[in-house]
Nucleic acid binder design. Structure first.
Lengths: 334, 334
DNA sequence: TTGAAAGCGCTAACAC
DNA sequence: GTGTTAGCGCTTTCAA
């Protein structure tokens, strides 16, 4: 692997001059710079980020931490990657193991040792955040309601969930079941709150039995829906706290011999790619992933540049995506 | 961030002794070691991998390169993560941008600068491999037929695809359509070859029109299936080169007013998690992801340890998973 | 505009 | 069993 020293030697300049040239910094004459760049290119010089980082420099690398095995997070990560590349940064991803296993404290340290900053997609809260706070690297979180202690980006879960309930109500549904998410996450709590608020606001059927505990997972959604269907008076529509739960619910509904949407309307949240591809296609609330990714990257870059943006919370709007799983009560498709 | 020097100072030993203790190497008395470990723990010492790597040491970090946005690759990556953690390594992932963009040469360099070795999940071949060869770091590939120039792990695509065709034939299908994968990948070519071989071997209907070009993507599968359905004599069953294509095919079949499996049997390949969750659940060929991941990690560790395993190709068996989308020709479910 | 010196945190090699 | 020395590849600071 060619080093800066070799480039410098061939060019007949000092290492420092080569460094300046390669990093596009002032203090090198046009001619020298061109020559150095030519040589670097020729011998295939690539900066060693470990060394850069070690000597206090920047690596143009951002780290991302998240639970890769949820469809939503994967999508978000890909969007962050695009956003990063768009501003000439590369992205390295650390996938958190299953919930709560091994203190991820040194994971941030790990990334921190090679990256300029880290974006954390919070899988769960409190305990995790505490360990992060010790880290002395720029951090931006996604999916955290309070911008404390890090700047955060989040979709407007509350407004989005209201949209969902409103949509079902507009279709004539008065008895709407809700499948909760993993309530350790603020997003899950916000969506539930919106559901409850709308229910009373619109004079829909109340009752705790209409709220069924899920966990953002497929299986949780399946079981939650089963409980809803077993009610003396089952709902005519179900709002699942995320798309994945909605898929689980769909399976349960069908197993009960009912059809979606003719016998039971269904609406999800997130708009993961799969939602559109399902049959019938899932009506849902879209989170603005590309915008969220860009916002997070921008926040992070600002912090890296030293422009402190402490306690900033960026909330991005969600959007109702009407597809095929929610129709007029007692109605037929179309 | 506490450094080794601080640990050493507090413990009243040299940096080297602290290093030996922390890395669990011989040459330190039990007592000293315990004391050093205690202190390290207390002040929250975490080894700086950049420095470790720079000074020629090992980081206990493996890198993974792949296109994260395909469901199959994501699954594989998660399995690699588990396999790595099981042997006390951490994993960092680099997600390749869309096909062919930006020479990924320095991506390997990037990982190479912080990791002990890299597992590459080949998204496409040739051009990519060439740039990898320059790298002087242990590399293991997945999904590459020739173990050249790197050791490789691969599922037995040929045998698996034979299983699929055999299954359909056993169910009485004589006219079986095939949706190809992205044939830049060896796995796609192997599956196609198996389909063709079995077709003649079992005296099934031949004809190039039964082979429809796909690309391993949902949309490609959708369009390929459409062409198959538009044939004067459409097939009674379709074998899609992977699950994702099969999903696309299912949409096309339904849009044509046909039912799966009553009017059209369907079989996929990979057995991604979604396959089981679909409705009806997809009959498919399972790739042994956990085993593949373990094999790749083991190969890599062997190389890191200096036990060269050049030109080794590990082929793992695939398995038919019977679910609901393939039934007897003209038959009814059950 | 350029260069020399020092050091980031760590580990190999060699002393003792 | 322990310490010393040197150096990985780079960037900072300061000097020319």
């Amino acid at each position: 692997m060619p080093t800066l020293a070799e480039v410098a030697k061939i060019a007949g300049v000092s290492i420092m001059t080569a460094s300046r040239a390669v990093n596009n910094r002032p203090g090198v004459s046009e001619r020298t710079r061109d020559e150095i760049m030519r040589i670097a290119d020729e011998i295939g010089y690539v900066a060693n980020r470990a060394a850069q980082k070690l000597s206090g420099g920047q690596t143009h690398l951002i780290g991302v931490i998240g639970q890769l095995y949820t469809g939503f997070t994967s999508e978000l990560v890909l969007n962050i990657g695009s956003a990063a590349r768009a501003v000439d940064y590369e992205m390295l991803v650390y996938s958190l193991p299953a919930e709560n296993r091994s203190p991820p404290g040194n994971v941030v340290d790990l990334l921190n040792q090679v990256a300029d900053g880290v974006i954390v997609i919070l899988p769960y809260e409190s305990d995790y955040l505490a360990t992060l706070t010790r880290s002395h690297i720029p951090i931006v979180t996604i999916d955290q309601t309070k911008p404390d202690p890090f700047p955060a980006v989040i979709a407007d879960n509350y407004a989005g969930a209201r949209l969902a309930v409103q949509h079902l109500a507009d279709l004539g549904h008065k008895r709407i079941g809700f499948i909760t998410g993993n309530e350790r996450l603020a997003s899950a709590r916000d969506r539930r709150r919106a559901y409850c608020d709308m229910r009373s606001q619109l004079n829909l059927d109340q009752g705790d039995d209409l709220i069924s505990k899920g966990d953002f997972q497929q299986k949780g959604g399946y079981e939650a829906a089963k409980r809803l269907l077993a009610l003396k008076r089952p709902p005519t529509a179900i709002f699942a706290a995320n798309d994945v739960s909605a898929f689980g619910a769909m399976t349960a509904i069908r197993q009960a011999g009912l059809r979606v949407p003719e016998d039971m309307s269904l609406i999800g949240f997130d708009d993961i790619p799969l939602a559109a591809q399902l049959h019938p296609a899932l009506t849902t609330i879209r989170q603005p992933l590309p915008q969220m990714a860009r916002a997070a990257v921008n926040l992070l870059l600002a912090m890296i540049a030293g422009i402190d943006a402490p306690s900033q919370l960026i909330t991005l709007p969600t959007q109702l995506i009407v597809r095929e799983t929610a129709i007029k009560i007692g109605g037929r498709v179309g």
